[in-house]
Design a protein around this nucleic acid. Sequence first.
DNA 1: CGCCATTACATGACAATGTTATGCATAACA
DNA 2: TGTTATGCATAACATTGTCATGTAATGGCG
Lengths: 229, 229
Amino acid sequence: MDTLSGVPPRSADPHLHQRIINTAARLLATEGAVSARRLARELGTSTMVVYTHFGGMDELSRQVMRRGFGDFGAELDRGAVTDDAVADWMTYLWSYRRFALREPHLYAVMFGPGLAAFRLGDPADLEAARSTFVSLLRRIHACVNAGRWEVDDVTTAGEAVWSGVHGHTTLEHTGFFGAVGRDPVRSFSEILTRMSIGLGDDAPATARSLSTARRRAVRADRTDAASAR
Amino acid sequence: MDTLSGVPPRSADPHLHQRIINTAARLLATEGAVSARRLARELGTSTMVVYTHFGGMDELSRQVMRRGFGDFGAELDRGAVTDDAVADWMTYLWSYRRFALREPHLYAVMFGPGLAAFRLGDPADLEAARSTFVSLLRRIHACVNAGRWEVDDVTTAGEAVWSGVHGHTTLEHTGFFGAVGRDPVRSFSEILTRMSIGLGDDAPATARSLSTARRRAVRADRTDAASAR
DNA sequence: CGCCATTACATGACAATGTTATGCATAACA
DNA sequence: TGTTATGCATAACATTGTCATGTAATGGCG
């Protein structure tokens, strides 16, 4: 109705822009969906803020996606660089899986077919996604430099690796492994193992690296679980 | 309004059930989305037919998905069995990619996170998806029997392979390869190659099988394009 | 053959979605 | 202080899936 001046008129919040993105990301993570009205209710505003600040839900989703890629990349790059390059590469991919499992909806926004990063070719979106890919390529390069792998085209190898882990995580998100009573960890290990051997490593060395990376991953899982409490 | 008897009352169509599924599949393929109203308009009925026949859009989508898995499996099993088991396996996966590219929306319904096959555990849905997986396992078994691969756990190997090709197709669907100017065929070939070597084949034999399978795939692509005309 | 019950379907309404036109109150500025 | 601009709330519109209601056709039974 008419605006009663009894209600203190909300002064312009200088951080509203970021608050919207943060709240949208939180709602996405906790409730699996973000609607303009749900978001407005959470923010204590009207749905119009989405349109004055982002022009619509699409652009907001892309901003959430960009932030997601930022967090994703930061978390992936946290992995140490040791003298076992293949183990480092595997650790990187275990972190990849950990993030995807912890943030399934964010991952879906980032890689899903909805308003995927690449279709609406905003260079900033493309760059956000590409930087994490480049980070993977560095790990692969290290394996080549260490003499473990023989790869002429690192980018193509990176695409193959990425396809494998991305496919695995999306399958795991659908609940496939649980539904058929299979172990996703075993399947993921298989991908890492066969890929490493296929890229030139010998089987025993890959097995040793897998053990190392698996140990690190279990420890990181525990840290993750502890910080969630 | 009141029902004018001037309009000939539509007698119960005994094939309506199938017509709904077929039309939904067609709309999904041609328009990328199926809404109850769009479907009703196409069928010349009201939206209620969806509810009397399926109870809602969800169940209808699952029926479309089931039909999709049927077509998918039939098309995949069309590949010949020759004395080059690895080439046969690769041909199978090229067919996989071909189907996914030709029917992106159907593929998304089949494997997407929406009302994924596995989450709502209807055994019929599970079986529909599983049968195509079993078909993949047969191809892998043939490679092992031929002495090309050394695999103790065929199912786990199948999951790894599936992750790779599934991940690749979903990435291709997002438009990633086009956006960054990369060649999806090369990436897909890399997956097949590294996986085959990783599963025990030697590199030259894998390369020969890849050539064979690629030739077959190109021919099948042509046939596909011709029949589309 | 004629009546009744069941069933299939159309109509229209409801809630929730993204979006937008309108208006007002505050903020920024001269 | 007066003017402009902007940010946001209100309320509406179109579209979605869904459902309550009514009606007409179908099929069984006397």
